[in-house]
Design a protein around this nucleic acid. Structure first.
Lengths: 198, 198
DNA sequence: AGATCCATGTAAGACGTTACATGATTTG
DNA sequence: CAAATCATGTAACGTCTTACATGGATCT
């Protein structure tokens, strides 16, 4: 649930007929963005399996460019999709490396804490913009409007909190980075493991 | 990052010495709850590997019960942990089957949409309570206070939105469930796939 | 005596990402 | 002509969950 399979089916709801490539591109800026954006390596196998299972049908389109497989949903596919949505839903998951790092803000260099918060604000601002674009772009159904509104409400509340309370964590952070064995040269992706063991 | 490894290290920060079992139990109701709660199948291998790598040390405690391995962090472990937190953080991920389902509320039976929203409100209410318990329980550091406040702010905003706007999606949902080939008997976990293909 | 909790660990399987392989077409 | 985009697919790898195996201790 909420895996590549379901995203593919979702993209084909309403009689839409698209290729795997199109699905990927649409998911990058669609209503489900922010929820899950699977890679090609997930999408293509998912489409193949859904077709095997009879939930989709393919048609090869040699028009102009290369092969281009156009997928469309079958009646069984639609039923399967809506049934899955109707069945008991698994719990939602929110994994935030940012918040996890903030838990230990008291032991991190102040400049880094500041940079992390700056970045989080940037990211969430972008998400807000993306949702606003979505709302003005098309004429969304009630479900989409609801989800967009929900996203907007939580994002704005989070941003508000970050801006209003950031000073408190930043003040608690370390002024002298050397205290944790971290100097100015750690901004790279270098594996911190090297030289630590064995 | 924000995997079982990091959670284990996080649980051992501040000179704490605990067993894998304890880590699991603490994560179920700790500051990082809601972020990630790994299973035993992730924790035990993670602890073993971290020990091999020199980030942790073990001591077997035969006191009273059975073996019970008590883990503690080494200096290398602390450095590794803080360095990882200081390095560029991966993006956060929010996967919500609830919101995904809501996108298609217009094609789902109204009673189910209502039940989903009820459940979401319950779950988020519980999360709010959990955070409030956490805040009163102990004397948390600035980082924890910040994260708890952030969680509270976003959760409350979401709850507010759900209560204020639920009527609109519910009204858009289907009154007659038979229109989607879904009758009253699908509330079970039965694989919807059976009989759909081949 | 049986159930439940404490406690650790392994194996199988699901799911996902990254990187690679391939090749046509369009754009600069 | 080189680079980017279109387009599909596979293989290697990592991570997590579930289920299983095991056994002592405590509670009812």
């Amino acid at each position: 649930m909420l895996d590549a399979r379901m995203l593919c089916l979702a993209a084909l709801m309403g009689g839409r007929e698209v290729s795997g490539y199109d699905i990927k591109k649409e998911l990058e800026r669609g209503a489900a963005t922010g929820l899950y954006d699977p890679s090609f390596g997930s999408i293509y196998p998912a489409l193949a399996r859904l077709t095997e299972e009879g939930y989709l049908v393919v048609r090869s389109e040699d028009a102009g460019r290369r092969d281009r497989k156009i997928y469309a949903m079958t009646t069984a596919g639609r039923t399967y999709f809506l049934r899955t949505l109707t069945a008991p839903l698994p719990d939602e998951k929110y994994r935030s490396p940012f918040l996890f790092a903030m838990l230990f803000a008291d032991e991190l260099p102040r400049s880094r804490v500041r940079a992390m918060i700056d970045r989080q604000i940037d990211l969430w601002d972008q998400k807000v913009d993306a949702i606003r674009d979505l709302s003005t772009d098309q004429s969304p159904c009630a479900g989409e409007t609801f989800v967009n509104g929900f996203g907007l409400a939580t994002l704005l509340a989070g941003l508000e909190f970050l801006k209003r309370h950031r000073a408190r964590v930043e003040d608690a952070a370390l002024v002298d980075p050397s205290a944790v064995g971290i100097d100015a040269s750690h901004t790279s992706f270098s594996k911190a493991a090297s030289g630590a063991a064995e």
